[in-house]
Design a binder for these strands. Structure first.
Lengths: 108, 108
DNA sequence: TATATTTGCAACCAATAGGTTTCTTAATTT
DNA sequence: AAATTAAGAAACCTATTGGTTGCAAATATA
């Protein structure tokens, strides 16, 4: 079962979990309180998130605190890079167009 | 079947299709040539991408050209925004730490 | 020491995903 | 007009997903 970040964030519950623990490390029980699914279902999500290294665990007695591995989120950002070039280009083109129009107006 | 962008980009073939047509509009047949799956399977991916508005169609005779709707990609960027704050913060904290260390050294 | 709490794991289930093959429709060539 | 080409739709199949319940292990508390 080769997991990757993109598959991990496909599920809305998992995105919500990520957003939750981004603020502070939390235990599975505490996380589960925020959803209408069982603790075990949350645990499964956490396992998937751990497998693709989006999340790290820290044991504290019998509790396990989960927190976000922010570096992994950057992988998505890295993938976006190729498209960012495109949309910035479009902006430049729009800028140039507006500039051209403005100059033509000024010439009058 | 409520599709969203995150589910759409979860599949690696779909991400490849997106990257392909980001460069130039392409027909399903032309796209399919780049993969080991049938044209019909590509068509299904294109339908999903169209449903969540990541892709737009332009009919030209009996051919249909598919191209990327770059604006929709920005939705992912928007979602990343909340985390970008976090990782920029971490950088700042590191900067401060390094600065503090440097000052201490200079004081000597 | 006995009991309660926190967690992960396994077995199971229904729905969905991603692929295939077959067929239809519409536009282009010959 | 007939044949070819491009594409979507439908039916089907298997693997995966996201959920459940029940159980076992480890730690903490009475």
């Amino acid at each position: 079962m080769r997991r990757d970040v993109f598959q991990a964030i496909a599920d809305p519950t998992r995105r919500a979990i990520i957003a939750l623990i981004a603020l502070q490390a939390m235990t599975p029980n505490a996380i589960a309180e925020n959803f209408d699914i069982t603790r075990q279902a949350v645990s499964k999500h956490l396992r998937i998130l751990t497998e693709c290294e989006l999340v790290i665990q820290k044991q504290k007695g019998r509790e396990i605190y989960y927190s976000l591995e922010i570096e992994k989120i950057k992988e998505i950002d890295k993938w976006l890079e190729q498209f960012r070039k495109i949309w910035e280009n479009r902006f430049d083109q729009l800028d140039n167009l507006l500039l051209t129009l403005k100059n033509k107006k000024d010439e009058k």
